[in-house]
Measured scan of single mutants.
Amino acid sequence: MTTFKLIINGKTLKGEITIEAVDAAEAEKIFKQYANDNGIDGEWTYDDATKTFTVTE
């Protein structure tokens, strides 16, 4: 398992979430479901060097 981080730069929600996932594809699926569940819709980026996803509304 690898640790992945999501940085949320939303209009109403900001913060960071860290999860353990098998790979970046699994982490992205989990993070996008979390964002969808919380009404966050924005532009996604991923930095493989730091294993960090960012979503900006």
Results as ranks from 00 to 15, higher is better:
Ala21Gly: 01
Ile8Arg: 00
Glu20Ser: 13
Tyr46Gln: 15
Leu6Ile: 02
Glu43Asn: 13
Thr45Leu: 05
Glu28Cys: 02
Trp44Gly: 01
Asn38Leu: 13
Phe4Cys: 01
Ile8Gly: 06
Gly39Leu: 05
Lys29Arg: 09
Ala25Arg: 03
Ala24Asp: 14
Gly42Leu: 00
Asn38Gly: 11
Thr12Asp: 13
Glu28Asn: 08
Asp37Lys: 11
Thr45Arg: 07
Glu43Trp: 02
Thr3Glu: 12
Ile7Ser: 11
Gly42Ser: 00
Asp23Asn: 14
Lys29Met: 07
Trp44Ala: 02
Asn36Arg: 07
Phe4Pro: 00
Asp37Pro: 01
Thr18Ile: 10
Thr50Lys: 08
Ile17Trp: 10
Ile17Phe: 05
Thr52Glu: 14
Thr52Leu: 12
Asp37Val: 05
Met1His: 13
Lys11Gln: 06
Val22Phe: 10
Ala27Gly: 11
Tyr46Lys: 04
Glu16Ser: 02
Ile30Arg: 10
Lys32Thr: 10
Lys29His: 15
Thr18Cys: 02
Gly10Phe: 12
Tyr46Glu: 13
Ala49Met: 08
Ile40Gln: 05
Val55Arg: 00
Thr2His: 03
Val55Asn: 03
Ala27Arg: 00
Gly39His: 11
Ile7Gly: 04
Asp47Ser: 10
Thr56Asn: 08
Gly10His: 03
Thr52Ala: 10
Thr18Val: 07
Val22Ser: 10
Asn36Pro: 03
Thr12Pro: 15
Thr18Pro: 05
Ile17Lys: 07
Leu13Phe: 09
Asp23Gln: 04
Glu26Phe: 11
Phe31Cys: 03
Val55Asp: 02
Thr3Lys: 14
Gly10Ala: 09
Glu26Cys: 02
Asp48His: 06
Gly10Ile: 13
Asp23Ser: 10
Leu13Cys: 01
Met1Glu: 13
Lys11Thr: 15
Phe31Trp: 02
Glu28Ser: 12
Asn38Lys: 07
Ala27Pro: 01
Phe31Gly: 15
Asp41Ala: 03
Thr54Gln: 15
Thr56Met: 06
Leu13Trp: 06
Lys29Gly: 15
Leu6Trp: 10
Ala35Met: 11
Asn38Pro: 01
Met1Cys: 02
Ile40Tyr: 05
Lys14Thr: 12
Gln33Trp: 10
Glu43Thr: 09
Thr3Arg: 14
Phe53Ile: 07
Glu16Leu: 01
Glu20Leu: 09
Ile8Tyr: 15
Lys51Cys: 01
Lys5Asp: 14
Thr12Ser: 13
Ala27Tyr: 00
Ile19Trp: 15
Tyr46Ile: 07
Gln33Ala: 09
Gly15Glu: 12
Gln33Tyr: 08
Glu43Gln: 05
Ala25Ser: 12
Glu28Pro: 00
Gly15Asp: 10
Asp41Leu: 05
Glu26Arg: 04
Ile40Arg: 01
Ala25Thr: 09
Met1Thr: 04
Glu57His: 03
Asp23Glu: 13
Asn36Ala: 14
Ile8His: 05
Glu57Ile: 03
Phe53Leu: 13
Ile19Pro: 00
Ile8Cys: 02
Val55Lys: 01
Ala49Leu: 08
Gly39Trp: 08
Gly15Leu: 11
Ile19Lys: 02
Asp48Trp: 12
Lys11Ser: 07
Ile17Gln: 14
Thr50Ile: 05
Tyr34Leu: 09
Ile19Gln: 02
Ala49Glu: 08
Ala49Val: 07
Gly10Asp: 06
Ala24Gly: 08
Thr45Trp: 05
Thr45Cys: 02
Phe4Gln: 01
Ile19Arg: 12
Lys5Tyr: 12
Asp48Phe: 14
Glu16Tyr: 02
Ala21Gln: 09
Ile19Tyr: 02
Thr2Asn: 15
Lys32Trp: 13
Ile19Asp: 07
Asn36Glu: 11
Gln33Val: 05
Ile40Pro: 02
Ile8Lys: 02
Leu13Val: 04
Ile19Ala: 05
Glu20Arg: 05
Tyr34Ala: 08
Ala24Pro: 14
Ala25Phe: 13
Val55Pro: 01
Ile17Leu: 06
Ile40Lys: 01
Val22Pro: 09
Lys14Phe: 06
Leu6Asp: 00
Asp48Met: 10
Asp23His: 12
Glu26Pro: 14
Ala35His: 01
Met1Lys: 14
Tyr46Pro: 00
Glu26Thr: 06
Asn9Ile: 10
Lys51Gln: 07
Asn38His: 08
Phe53Pro: 00
Asn36Phe: 13
Glu26His: 13
Lys29Pro: 12
Ile30Thr: 11
Phe31Thr: 05
Thr56Phe: 08
Lys5His: 04
Thr18Lys: 11
Gly15Pro: 15
Asp48Ala: 08
Trp44Ser: 03
Ile40Thr: 03
Asp37Ser: 04
Val55Cys: 01
Asn36Leu: 12
Leu6Asn: 06
Thr2Asp: 10
Glu57Phe: 03
Asp48Lys: 02
Thr54Ile: 06
Asp23Val: 12
Thr50Glu: 08
Phe4Arg: 00
Thr18Arg: 12
Ala25Ile: 15
Lys14Arg: 06
Thr2Gln: 10
Gly39Arg: 12
Lys11Glu: 05
Thr3Gln: 05
Ala27Val: 12
Glu20Tyr: 11
Asn38Met: 08
Trp44His: 04
Thr52Phe: 12
Ile8Met: 15
Ala24Ile: 09
Gly42Cys: 00
Glu20Ile: 14
Asp48Gln: 15
Thr50Pro: 04
Asp37Gly: 06
Gly42Phe: 00
Asp48Tyr: 11
Thr18Phe: 10
Leu6Gly: 15
Thr54Tyr: 03
Ile40Leu: 12
Ala21Asp: 11
Thr2Glu: 12
Gly42Trp: 04
Ile8Trp: 07
Lys14Pro: 09
Gly10Asn: 10
Thr54His: 15
Phe31Val: 15
Glu43Cys: 03
Ala25Pro: 14
Tyr34Ile: 03
Leu6Glu: 00
Asp48Leu: 02
Trp44Asp: 00
Asn38Ser: 12
Asp48Glu: 05
Glu26Ser: 09
Leu13Met: 13
Glu57Trp: 03
Gly10Gln: 10
Asn9Ala: 04
Gly15Lys: 09
Leu13Arg: 00
Asp23Gly: 02
Asp23Leu: 04
Ile40Asn: 01
Lys5Gly: 11
Glu20Thr: 15
Tyr46Leu: 07
Lys29Val: 15
Glu26Asp: 06
Ala25Leu: 12
Ile8Thr: 09
Phe53Arg: 00
Tyr34Gly: 02
Trp44Asn: 00
Phe53Gly: 01
Thr54Met: 14
Glu28Trp: 10
Asp47Leu: 12
Val55Phe: 04
Ile17Cys: 02
Glu43Leu: 05
Asp47His: 08
Met1Gln: 14
Asp41Tyr: 02
Ile40Asp: 01
Ala25Tyr: 04
Ala35Val: 06
Gly15Val: 14
Ala24Leu: 06
Glu20Cys: 02
Asp47Val: 03
Glu28Ile: 11
Lys5Val: 10
Phe31Glu: 00
Val55Ser: 06
Ala24Thr: 11
Leu13Asp: 14
Phe4Trp: 11
Gln33Ile: 06
Glu43Pro: 10
Asn36His: 07
Lys14Gly: 11
Glu20Met: 04
Lys11Tyr: 13
Thr54Lys: 10
Ile17Pro: 06
Ala21Leu: 15
Ala35Thr: 04
Phe31Leu: 05
Ala24Glu: 03
Ile17Glu: 13
Thr18Glu: 14
Thr45Asn: 07
Glu43Ser: 02
Ala25Met: 10
Val22Tyr: 14
Ile30Leu: 04
Glu20His: 08
Gly39Thr: 11
Asn9Asp: 03
Gly10Val: 11
Trp44Leu: 07
Asn9Tyr: 07
Gly42Thr: 00
Val22Ile: 11
Ala24Asn: 07
Thr52Ser: 05
Thr18His: 08
Asn36Trp: 14
Leu13Ile: 08
Tyr34Arg: 03
Thr45Phe: 07
Thr12Trp: 12
Ala21Trp: 06
Lys5Ser: 12
Met1Gly: 12
Asp37Asn: 08
Thr45Lys: 13
Lys29Cys: 02
Lys51Ala: 11
Val55Met: 09
Tyr46Asn: 10
Thr12Gly: 06
Ala35Pro: 01
Thr56Val: 06
Thr54Pro: 00
Lys51Tyr: 06
Asp47Pro: 03
Thr2Ala: 15
Gln33Cys: 02
Ala25Lys: 12
Ala35Phe: 00
Tyr34His: 05
Val55Glu: 01
Ile40Gly: 01
Lys14Leu: 13
Asp23Ile: 12
Glu57Tyr: 10
Lys29Leu: 08
Lys5Ala: 11
Glu26Trp: 11
Val22Arg: 07
Ala49Tyr: 11
